[in-house]
């Protein structure tokens, strides 16, 4: 069976600085992978390269989504094919109303699937359904995208967008950072509701804490731009106890 995501010997750099150094990763439908690693390992970079952000140069390797190379695709094409990145630092967009943004995203994705556009009331209904489950009220939806949201509200909003867009591959970059324990539960429940045999997850985190709530099938350790160890969920606990020091040394 073709994997959902296949990252093959990926090398990437920014401004001539090598950040990913031959990274391999295979994610099948239905699996939840965790990527853990010290700060500066290149975790966010990996998520950006997968999502198609400008400025990164892939010098070697390939990234396949359902067997198709994504490297030449615009970020919007990737999103429409089912890639979703929940940002470590979601951006504030003054002047763009949250509803306008969500409807534009929904309709852009529906269009590529040949589905009719959602009317404004239909979009509002759909958003309200999902938003409620994540404790996001109408007041927040009336504001410009992420503007004035607390760190926790931003992460809930990211999860809400993910639930709304129903992606195939969910990339979560440090979704737990800046969350208190209650918010962490809300967000994790939101993510767990989306788990399905059709969907794959890559959960990037620095701490094991999130993985108590979103229990992974496979855990990878990333250091200096590549995966240095892979194991089951018990690996996360081991890391919590021993820290990343040994991996940082290996990489150095």
């Amino acid at each position: 069976m073709t994997p959902l995501l296949e990252v093959k010997n990926l090398h990437a750099e920014i401004d001539g600085k090598k950040i990913l150094n031959g990274l391999d990763l295979v994610v099948n439908k239905g699996e939840v992978h965790a990527i853990m690693g010290p700060n500066g390992a290149g975790k966010s970079t990996l998520s950006y390269v997968l999502a198609g952000r400008d400025g990164y140069e892939v010098t070697e390797g390939d990234v396949l989504l359902n067997g198709e190379s994504m490297l030449e695709m615009e970020p919007s094409e990737r999103a429409c094919k089912g890639v979703f990145l929940a940002f470590q630092y979601p951006m504030e967009i003054p002047g763009v109303a949250t509803m306008t943004f969500l409807r534009a995203a929904l309709n852009a994705q529906r269009k590529t699937r040949g589905e009719p556009e959602l009317s404004s009331p239909d979009a509002i209904r759909k958003v309200k359904d999902v938003a409620g489950q994540l404790g996001i009220n109408m007041d927040m939806l009336k504001r410009p995208v992420n503007v004035g949201f607390s760190g926790g509200e931003k992460k809930r909003a990211e999860t809400m967008q993910m639930a709304l867009l129903e992606p195939k591959l969910c990339l979560l970059d440090e979704t737990d950072s800046g969350l208190d324990i209650d918010a962490l539960k809300v967000v994790s429940e939101g993510v767990n509701r989306l788990r399905s045999p059709e969907r794959g997850f890559v959960v990037i985190t620095h701490y094991q804490r999130l993985l108590d709530h979103i229990v992974p099938d496979i855990v990878h350790v990333m250091s200096a731009g590549k995966i240095v160890r892979t194991g089951g969920k018990e690996l996360a606990h081991e890391l919590e106890a021993s820290g990343y020091a040994q991996y940082q040394q290996e990489a150095a």
Binding site: A51, P75, M91, A108
Partner: peptide, 10 residues
């Protein structure tokens, strides 16, 4: 990029 990452074309 943020907007495009949600599927909105350039």
């Amino acid at each position: 990029f943020y907007l495009m990452a949600r599927g909105i074309p350039a």
